[in-house]
Design a protein around this nucleic acid. Structure first.
Lengths: 242, 242
DNA sequence: CGGCTAGTTGACCAGCTTCAAGTATTGTGG
DNA sequence: CCACAATACTTGAAGCTGGTCAACTAGCCG
């Protein structure tokens, strides 16, 4: 049973069993947080990196007048910061969406491990490349895609991310977000998210009930989103033999 | 005369004269590109990192139907990718806005230099932290800020970035973007950028003529943007003495 | 069962886009 | 250095996407 962290990183580089062990040893001890609780708040000194082991979390910022923007979602296996540096003070908050288990990792240990192990270093850089590429897609979504396209793209991306850690298949995945959280994540309002979900349902693209998202027509959904997974850079890994 | 790259990095770590020399030696030979020309196009294999030495460039994506989104602007001293890895194929394009001078750097050389020199490594990680933080602010802008707030924030951020490399002072800076480029950078249309600029001018916040942007009322502009530069992490550097 | 939270829907409104026309500015060849 | 073309900017009118407000319905949990 490999951890989601290792499972994800194996899409970016060839990791041996020993590499996997080294990574998992870093990810201890395990902490927990309840749903809706903050792991780190804006202004806090972080002290460590945060690695999500189980459950969903998010990076968000809150404006003075209450407007809230979820900047990124973090899924099992996700490292919430670039691994090599910690800010002295957080410029955003890190919140648990569901109940989560997470590990706190010191960046100097992470750096030491990467320095000692080229495969692990490669995998971590690939992870940063992916993180960064998803950020870029988000800018495109927010800047140029209509609500339905944006939502469709979001679903396609989430499905692929979850598939990389064995939490989604072709037919769908568990989506623990309520509509107001979806709204904060997509730069829309809850009411409009509702209408847009209804639209996708009416078009026969998806179903969503009791937190279970089912993709009824994957091709039509991808077409609407114009979703092209090249930005996941899954071709980055050389063949893993020997 | 220190290069903008070194000048910027010195805000993130204490670099000696020797460090500066090492960095500048990496940034050779120098290439040029004309305004409006692409340095790299989506799908290209990049071979090297790109470091902007002079002029403005941008990362952008083009959708099938012609919609275009500028994802990031690159100013003198900016590295256009995370320094440790190259994708096999570009998932976006890199275009020159003005005529530019740039250097092509091999990531393995960059990594070797960072590995050999802790100060340089620290500076490069700080640069990534800043790059990433700006991306986050952009998500907040696109998701939750009105056009005038978004534009005001954009101007405040640009002014500070340019100030870090000596290309802006309190009163303003040269802004080589035409309004349709501004629009592509901010997720709006050229017409609305025009109206919003007019609005900021009418409110006495800025002037903009012949590519020269003058900030008439810095405090009012910051207030409108709710611009807080903590996300630049300028406190990250320890005191540079001895 | 009752109270709370989440989801749904309608009516109306605001911000931004689109389309179109006109004005200013810039660049270029004679 | 001017004339003229091309590009950039400005403005108005109308329309669309998404926001706001408000009410109602459906789950969920003690």
């Amino acid at each position: 049973m490999t951890s989601p962290f290792v499972q994800k990183l194996r899409h970016g580089a060839c990791l041996t069993e020993e590499d996997a062990l080294l990574l998992d040893q870093l990810a201890r001890p395990v902490h927990v947080a309840q749903a809706h609780h903050d792991i780190l708040m804006e202004g806090d000194p972080p002290h460590t990196l945060t690695l999500i082991l189980e459950g969903w979390a998010c990076r968000y910022k809150q404006l003075d007048d209450g407007r809230r923007q979820i900047i990124a979602l973090f899924l099992p296996g996700d490292l919430c910061e670039p691994y090599g540096i910690l800010p002295h003070f957080m410029d955003h908050s890190l919140g648990a969406i569901t109940a989560i288990r997470y590990a706190r990792i010191r960046p100097d240990e992470m750096r030491a491990l990467a320095r000692a192990n080229a495969r692990i270093e490669e995998a971590l850089w690939w992870d940063m490349l992916l993180q960064s590429a998803m950020q870029h897609e988000q800018t495109v979504s927010f800047g140029r895609r209509l609500a339905a396209e944006r939502l469709a793209h979001f679903i396609c991306e989430l499905r692929l991310r979850l598939a990389l850690v064995g939490l989604a298949d072709e037919t769908g995945f568990e989506l623990p977000l309520i509509q107001s959280q979806l709204a904060d994540a997509m730069g829309l309002t809850a009411v409009h998210i509702n209408r847009t979900l209804m639209e996708l349902r009416a078009a026969g693209l998806i179903e969503l009930q009791r937190k279970q998202l089912t993709i009824r027509d994957p091709e039509a959904l991808r077409n609407l989103a114009v979703f092209d997974p090249v930005y996941f850079h899954l071709d980055q890994r050389k063949d893993c033999n020997g």
